[in-house]
Design a protein around this nucleic acid. Structure first.
Length: 597
RNA sequence: GGUCCGGUAGCUCAGCUGGAUAGAGCAACAGCCUUCUAAGCUGUAGGCCAUUGGUUCGAAUCCAAUCCGGAUCACCA
């Protein structure tokens, strides 16, 4: 909550209670920022109050306004009433205090630790192909949410559960054995994840061909898909892997090693990291003991063939299988086990899973089962569900070669940043080293912002033909505004520290100055709601709005050549606070802002 | 078919715990660089907030129904 809004609610509630002989709570006071076409800063909406007061809206507003000015003059100095809207003027002394308290507060909006442990699991890739554009939404979301939760005082553990075993992994391995001729990242100069990904593609091609041949020989498609030699070999390899065959395990760890090397290069470029890695090869057998326990407790039941189920029909869902008749586990079984493992590893209060919305049902079932089994980890589980990133032609499909590769995308963004810099006449302004670092900051920022500015739960469409814009509602615009402010401050202060001792500020405030202040004061509230809703898009909107407001202010008022010294001081502090808030809010998104650009 | 999610300007999206005349960006058009960074600013144009009904002093926002689009409902992961 914004401190100012909170103060107004408290004062408003006290006023209603005193004036109209009724108990009124501060949370029942509705405060909105006053619309620009009316006079005032914040508006108290009185419609709910007039029912109790038994007055006309204008009279109730008038009485409330008078009361507030009389009893809370430190906060409210004036008002006007239009129908049920009581428009309040905030005491400029309040703003003066706000500025002096916060102009140099680098942790503005950041909360003290609340000792709540929350794990954020994100990325969680398969090790048979490189990361693509769709993964990037997941990765940026997970990282941003982690940062936002940290700023809200949570103790965050960033986790990555790697899907490093299974048929799909064996497919790449088989293809490499068959067609690889011993190729390695070193011998080919390829990034390991891309090399392995290529063999995954080679598998699919070879498989398709074998199936076609078999079908031509008179087999049905279904039979052919089972009988294709390369598929049989893959299944045999999976059996050997599970039996711990040293040769298969050796190849497996070698190829996975290549992939990890590639992944971590990409993660580094994306600017993300993890506190804890989980590997499915270590966790895929978990959950069986849990199932046994569930059977004992009577939460689960066994069918004649020995398979174990849970009945969720009472919750509007189906019966769900947890263990096959032969005693092997299914996907959800290991997820149950892993949920408990995570909980025990860190004594978690909450566990956030950043996973696409195609798994909504799965996650719902997972949580429900754990709840029914009485597992303490159950209630803290939260599925941060996000929509697919689609191309204008539909979903990305690796089989059709329509995936946008993550590494390619990053290269393209840096190239775009360079191109746009040249277009704007900014290239070659700095040393080459700074210039290149800048292209990186701009390119990466634009991409992150683009993927984070949309509400996670909405699916989004990315058109590679129209490259990501660096104008308008973008990180670039925010970055530029930050650099612009730094430049202004440099000009005014010349690198010297700003001394606020004995300073008085110029009052009254200009309209645009006040709008900036109103917005700055709301930052903690935005950070809080982004955390509560696990939605980084709020911060994208906030940062861009703030930048835009500043640019409007910048166009209308001078800092260096302000009307007088007091005005100049005020504006210097406004600049400082705006730059700081832009920087902080972008940091929450994993985006850095340059000192100049 | 059941469940869940979405439908707001030509396009991409805000706004959704009910409040004043629904906002940005892109694209289009017209302006603004001898004065702090023009990757910016100002203005014009663009809307039956999918449809219909309901609740309310008041609905893009809540409820119901309908229509479109998507996801999901495996002894796959």
């Amino acid at each position: 909550m914004s401190a100012l809004i909170q103060a107004l609610k408290t004062a408003g509630a006290a006023a209603v209670t005193a004036l109209f002989n009724t108990e009124w709570k501060s949370e029942d006071i509705l405060i909105n920022q006053t619309k620009p076409e009316f006079e005032g800063d914040y508006t108290l909406v009185t419609f709910a109050i007039i029912k109790v007061a038994r007055l006309k809206p204008e009279e109730a507003g008038q009485k409330l306004g008078e009361y507030l000015v009389a009893h809370n003059s430190d906060l409210v100095t004036g008002f006007n009433v239009i129908k049920g809207f009581l428009n309040l003027h905030i005491n400029e002394k309040w703003w003066q205090q706000f500025i002096l308290n916060n102009y140099n507060n680098t942790t503005y909006g950041i909360k003290a630790p609340n000792h709540t442990k929350v794990m954020v699991e994100y990325s969680s890739p398969n090790t048979n192909k490189p990361l693509h554009f769709g993964h990037m939404r997941n990765i940026y979301l997970g990282y941003a949410v982690s940062e936002i939760l940290k700023a809200n005082g949570y103790d965050v553990i960033k986790a990555n559960l790697v899907n490093d075993r299974g048929v799909h992994i064996c497919k790449s391995m088989i293809a490499w054995q068959m067609f690889g001729n011993g190729a390695t990242p070193a011998s080919t100069g390829m990034k390991g994840d891309h090399l392995v990904g290529d063999y995954y593609v080679k598998f699919n091609n070879a498989y398709k061909q074998e199936v076609e041949t078999l079908v031509a020989g008179g087999m049905t498609k279904e039979e052919a898909e089972k009988e294709a030699p390369i598929m049989k070999a893959t299944q045999e390899m999976l059996r050997k892997w599970e039996a711990g065959d040293p040769e298969v395990r050796e190849l497996w760890s070698t190829m996975n090693g290549w992939v990890y090397e590639g992944f971590f290069k990409t993660y580094a470029r994306l600017g993300v990291d993890f506190d804890k890695m989980y590997y499915e090869s270590n966790t895929y057998l978990l959950g069986k003991t849990l199932v046994e326990e569930g059977l004992r407790k009577g939460v689960l039941f066994q069918k004649e063939d020995g398979s174990v189920w849970i009945d969720l029909t009472a919750d509007g869902l189906d019966e769900k299988l947890l263990l096959r008749g032969d005693g092997t586990s299914v996907y959800i079984t290991q997820d149950l086990g892993t949920a408990v493992l995570k909980y025990n590893d860190f004594k978690l209060n909450q566990s956030v899973y950043v996973i696409g919305d195609e798994q909504n049902y799965h996650m719902k079932v997972l949580k429900l089962i754990l709840q029914k089994m009485g597992e303490p980890c159950a209630d803290g589980i939260y599925h941060l569900s996000y929509g697919m990133v689609e191309l204008p032609t539909g979903r990305m499909k690796s089989r059709e070669g329509t995936v946008v590769d993550a590494d390619d995308m990053l290269d393209e963004m840096v190239a775009l940043a360079k191109e746009e810099s040249e277009k704007a006449g900014k290239a070659n302004s700095f040393e080459a080293e700074e210039q290149n670092a800048l292209f990186d900051i701009i390119g990466m920022g634009a991409l992150k912002f683009y993927l984070l500015r949309v509400d996670p739960k909405k699916k989004m469409i990315f058109n590679p033909e129209e490259s990501i814009d660096l104008h308008g509602f973008t990180a670039t615009s925010v970055q530029y505004t930050h650099a612009r402010i730094r430049s202004v401050l440099n000009n005014v202060l010349g690198g010297a520290a700003f001394n606020t001792e004995g300073l008085t500020l110029s009052l009254p405030l200009e309209k645009l100055e006040k709008e900036l202040l109103l917005h700055l004061e709301q930052y903690p509230m935005i950070l809080e709601s982004a955390g509560a809703e696990l939605n980084p898009a709020h911060l994208c909107n906030y940062a861009y709005d703030l930048a835009k407001l500043f640019n409007t202010f910048y166009g209308a008022h001078k800092v260096a050549a302000a009307e007088n010294e007091e005005k100049k001081n005020l504006r210097i502090m406004l600049c400082q606070m705006t730059a700081m808030t832009l920087k902080n809010s972008m940091k929450m998104l994993g985006i850095s802002v340059p000192e100049r650009m």
